[in-house]
Amino acid sequence: MSLDKAMAATSSTAAGGLATRQAGTGTGRAVAAAVRIRSAAAKVLRSTAAIAAFAAIWELAPRLGLVDSTFLPPLSTVLSAWWDLAVSGALLEHFQASIVRSISGLLLAITVAIPLGLAIGYYKPVAALLNPLLELFRNTAALALLPVFILILGIGETSKITIVLFACTWPILLSTVNGVRSVDPLLIKSARSLGLQPFKLFFKVILPASLPSIFTGIRLAGASSILVLIAAEMVGAKAGLGYLINYTQYNFQIPEMYAGILTISALGLLINQGLVLLERRFSGWKNNA
């Protein structure tokens, strides 16, 4: 087959399989490489198309007068405001303040909620004792407690980290309990038949079997850590992305406000991505990883 013909074939969408089949031959290999590059490009295009369209609308709508550009400045204005904030170092300061709070709150929640969840899931008496109280706490909106935390712990870091800790605890706790309870009884039976004592059974079977569920909880907690933190920072703080947004809005620095919002999205993505990587590292044996 001539190279031309092969290239023509690759331009059709169904060419992927065809080219792979030809990969053994000399020209086929080049074609396959070309197809790979092409399909990679298509993939990038697909995954960015929606975002690009969103950016374009954001840029054009204010410029065309479809929305008031005072309240929604064009994306380019927002980005240049973001750049100014970044260069001045102010953005980094706020970003740091937020990420330190949310990650310390999340880490604390992990160290509290996982052992507690394992205990509740494993020992029925503990569950019976604690469930009513936990149910009450879980259904108390974290932000409703913010005034209490501020009252008791002051307006500093402690109250903010505490509220993140509070908000993050529940998803992790619940999914840990769930994970422990839904371990395949057959696996437990199989391990018990090998004479494993409860302690070893726990560490060798129940814990690893619950890990995927625990990670689901941690990821949910990661999302709510940011949500709660930003709200807390809006209420009372001297730094942080929530503070930045609130402050700029009061001072009518609208492009800066949007710059702050964009940064929060980036922070959220960052934390989620980090957790996904961690999850893959620890439960890579799952089908879907």
Binding site: S190, G195, K204, V205, P208, A209, W285
Partner: peptide, 29 residues
Amino acid sequence: TGPGLDRGIVFQQYALFPWRTARANIEFG
């Protein structure tokens, strides 16, 4: 009187530990 390694059990649903490789599953006992 209880479970023991003098008896090995093979279950219908395999009961392999999904987080362990084939080798690690065999090494479990």
